[in-house]
Amino acid sequence: MSGTASTLVHVAQPHRRRTLADPPWLKRTLLVVAIGFVALFLVIPLGAVFVEALRGGFRLYWAALTEPDALAAVRLTLLAAAIAVPCNVVFGLAAAWTIAKFDFRGKSVLTTLIDLPFAVSPVIAGLVYVLMFGAQGWMGEWLADRDLRIIFATPGIVLATVFVTFPLVARELIPLMQAQGRDEELAALTLGAGGWKTFWRVTLPNAKWGLFYGVVLCNARAMGEFGAVSVVSGHIRGETNTIPLHVEILYNEYQTQAAFAVASLLTLLALLTMLLKSLIEWRHRRALLAAAHAETRTFAS
């Protein structure tokens, strides 16, 4: 359920000046509570990751990152994300085009179903693939006969990753494309553009920031997923371990410093994601303000 209400459409409102002020004591109390809460639950854990990672010095930190099992985990994580993200882009664009540009019966049901993976525990997301493709699963025998492995192998990890990231691109695109309406597409059609040309030259350029935003979120989740992947991976070192699983193994083996060193990679990824998100929102807000400004000029003219 990540990313609730944090879509680009919602960011639209620029802050308004308020004439009414809260009494100073109230303002001070609320500020202290809010900042204290954020510091306790967000800032300190964030700092802890880096402090623990560098506890043994930079040399040990570097060694933990360049160890072969760690590198294998990085490779597998990149692979899983490289497959899951494009899958979700294709799905997200298709779903957004259908839902935002057409009216049909069952549209709200479809929208709810797309959100379904967010409501499912990651552990269950892994479990259902074990039930399908595991040794005792529906297709277990069939797969074993053909010497195909999905569970405890890379395909299972990719499937679980696609599942948990499933709604991310679609739910960024749908509200954005809905807000933009159909007029520009219809205008392109009356000017003689076909369906694909309309999509490539009108729809996609308009939705590109929403798409990018969805991709950034999807990528972060794909690289960081733990529960679902943990169930289907089988934890084979150097083979079916992603970065988060590698962190778990190191931590459980009391290699705390190495665990935090690898974890700091994921933390940097998270910080980069948040930075990109803020940049996109900032850019988007500026574009809206520019549009609003042009609007006032129109009325003034």
Binding site: L42, A220, E225, F226, G227, P244, Y251, M274
Partner: peptide, 26 residues
Amino acid sequence: RKIVDALVDLPFALPTAVAGIALTAL
């Protein structure tokens, strides 16, 4: 204010395993 605003998304962006070990260590 902007930093705090951006930080609120940390639990969405940070892999849960990392959050788990960081909180445990603390």
